[in-house]
Computed example of a mutant assay.
Amino acid sequence: MIPKINGLGRSFAGVAAYCLHDAPEPDDRRPETSKRVGWTDTRNLATIRPERAARLMAATAKAAPDLKRLAGGARGGRKLAKPVLHYSLSWARGETPDRREMSRAVDGSLEALGLEGHEALIVAHDDTRHPHVHVIANRVDPETGKTATLGNSELRLSRWAEGYEREQGRIRCEERVKNNARRRAGEEVVRTPWERPLHWARYRREGMLPGRARRARGPVDEERVDMEAWRRAEAQAWEKVEDRRWLGFWRLESRARKEWAELHKRQEDTRRRLDRESRTVRGRLRIWRIERSLRELVGAVRGREDLVEGWREDLDRYHKSERAALGKAHGESARQIERKVRENYRRGLRDAERWAWEMRARQPTWGRERARTITPIPIRPPRPRGPERDGGGFER
């Protein structure tokens, strides 16, 4: 069992269109056929039609303030920007769970996430060699209007998947069992850079596609070099720069995570201080001294709501510019890593061609030496791309 959280979204109709139809065409056209859909089902909805289910979930998310008021709670609070939760459950190749077993697994996963009372749409696909289902859940509770908290949702699904495999009588992912045992013991689970599941958007945004980074052209004159020696040297040069590349991005990711956490904490403290000081005359005058605007002096003394809201909007714009500057700095760091990788790789290609030319010149006498000097280079297998691409993906 491999659970994979595909992320949060804004549109129920968009994710439902993806799950209820075939995969998009190369030109991003949405196909009208739905041959890969095996069956559909709903939870806590008054309909079994999937298209209508998506519209009902969208209406529930939109009516969250009214649901809170009817349930006797506070109607205020920040508006929920992403009410859609999309995740998938995949079985191993060779397993043949029926619809009843898949539905039971979906109910168990929803209960593990605390969404057993929420609206959900279930879509089973049969276009791959491993059976899998997609679950589209509404984060808004249809009774109370409150938003479900999804902290550590991946770890929750990981623990549930381990229990599910134990019930089936066969553990298929031993590494997940070890990691969960280490977490229960209070140890930190740290993955190597090539084992970390990175989102496809990061590859596309930061230029981390191995196929694009590795542009190994052939030597200038293939007749004057030993092509077998050149291929081995090229593979060795790429293996060296790839390890440095992943290590550089891993360090950048660790540093960026710390800097983003510090930025969010500093901005949250600033917002709280503004809200606290805007409640008193002394605090509003202190803010006015920073603004240095005479026309706002009377409003600061009287505590006008529009003036306080203006201060909040100015603070939000400033915080947005801070986040944009930090993201731009991290993007530039990623581009610097890529530039260094390309330079080192070109240098390795030049050395490989020179070495292959020397091997060609020594062709009559180097046959016995090649077995001693050249050793096979292990190449790491490609990383899996998730349940939509023949298994793999999120395994913790």
Results as ranks from 00 to 15, higher is better:
L67R: 06
A53M: 07
G117W: 09
S90H: 05
E119H: 04
L85T: 11
P83F: 05
P65V: 12
G94L: 14
K68H: 03
G73I: 04
G94D: 12
N44E: 13
K35I: 06
L110Q: 12
R100S: 15
I48N: 14
L56S: 02
K82R: 09
A64K: 07
R55I: 01
L56F: 06
V37R: 02
R100F: 08
S88H: 07
S88L: 08
T60F: 01
T96A: 15
G94S: 11
D66Y: 08
M57K: 00
D66M: 10
R49C: 01
V84I: 12
L67V: 02
R75C: 05
V37S: 06
L121R: 01
G114F: 06
A74G: 12
R49K: 07
P83S: 11
W39F: 14
K79W: 11
W39E: 10
R93L: 11
K79Y: 09
E32P: 00
S103H: 09
S90Y: 05
P97T: 11
P50W: 01
A124S: 15
T47P: 04
T40S: 15
G38T: 10
K79T: 15
A92H: 14
A54W: 00
D66I: 04
A120R: 00
R78D: 02
H118K: 01
M102Q: 13
D98Y: 12
K68I: 06
A74I: 09
A112H: 10
V106G: 04
I122V: 15
P97D: 13
L67C: 05
A53R: 00
L70N: 13
E111L: 13
S88R: 08
K68T: 02
K35V: 08
W39H: 12
A53Q: 02
A124T: 12
S103E: 15
E119A: 04
A81G: 07
A92C: 11
T47Y: 07
R49Q: 08
A81M: 09
E119Y: 02
E116R: 12
R104D: 09
T42D: 03
E95V: 12
E51Q: 10
E119G: 01
L89A: 04
S103Y: 06
N44Y: 10
A54T: 01
L110I: 14
A92L: 10
L80D: 03
W39Q: 09
K82L: 06
R36S: 11
V37N: 07
G76T: 11
S103L: 15
I48P: 01
R75H: 09
H118P: 00
K79G: 04
E32R: 14
W91C: 03
R36Y: 05
E119D: 09
N44G: 01
D66Q: 14
L110T: 12
S34D: 13
T47N: 10
L45K: 10
S88C: 13
P83R: 04
P50H: 03
L70T: 05
V37H: 05
P97V: 09
E111K: 10
Y87K: 08
P83C: 12
A53G: 03
H86M: 04
L121N: 01
I48L: 11
E95C: 13
V106S: 07
